[in-house]
Amino acid sequence: MLAVRNLHKGFTLHLRDRLRLPVLAGVSLDVRAGECLALTGPSGTGKSTLLRCLYGNYRSEQGSIRVRHRGGWLDLARAHPRQVLAVRRETLGYISQFLRAVPRVSTLQLVAEPLVARGVAPQDARARAEDMLRRLRLPEALWPVPPDTFSGGEQQRVNVARGLIGRLPVLLLDEPTASLDPDNKAVVLECVQEAKTAGAAIIGIFHDTAARDALCDRAYDMTAARPETCAG
């Protein structure tokens, strides 16, 4: 579903005398449908950067990120922004650690939004959003409230709900269970496992080794793609 070849990414800080910070050098990996790949390695080895590159949030400098989209292969590293938006809508989901809330929009609407954007009727989207939130054990009283006042764990579950509701074929997970208590963590992992069973290709960062072992089939060691110039 996703094939990465020789991906390079670094940052040039123009404001710091054009300081060059290479992060990724030659990442190559493949993920197939129904498979879960874990990104491993200590902090600062570029796990989150890689996920953001894969999502098109960061611009890749070299290499290709090919994703199966609408029956063909599309290179996200070279795709037009509008194609990237289409891929995000129909193919590629991303669950980050942080929730970027839109002011004045209720939680339920926020979760239903990815479906509505794909043309699902608003009532159906709402119904599925309700199922999803119930499943993730978010109290019903919170549904009509915008999530900016929620606790970290609640926001995290809203984020998971929003990321999983579309049942997209490729999922990028950046510590989906980071701020959750054990019970909620188990529910979230169960949902992710379900997505995987349903055929989703998943790439994730899990600091929680138990979660990683339960979900992932393979691991990709980030230290293998460290740039030589970078000491850390």
């Binding site: 040039t12 800080l13 123009h14 404001l15 953001r52 949030n57 960061y58 611009r59 922004p81 990237v84």
Partner: peptide
């Protein structure tokens, strides 16, 4: 120019970086 979140989270040009910073 590009995707909004990409330009804001990973600005390439010196001026864009200044703007975001």
């Amino acid at each position: 120019q590009g995707l909004t979140d990409q330009v804001l989270d990973d600005p390439q040009h010196a001026y864009s970086q200044l703007l975001v910073a």
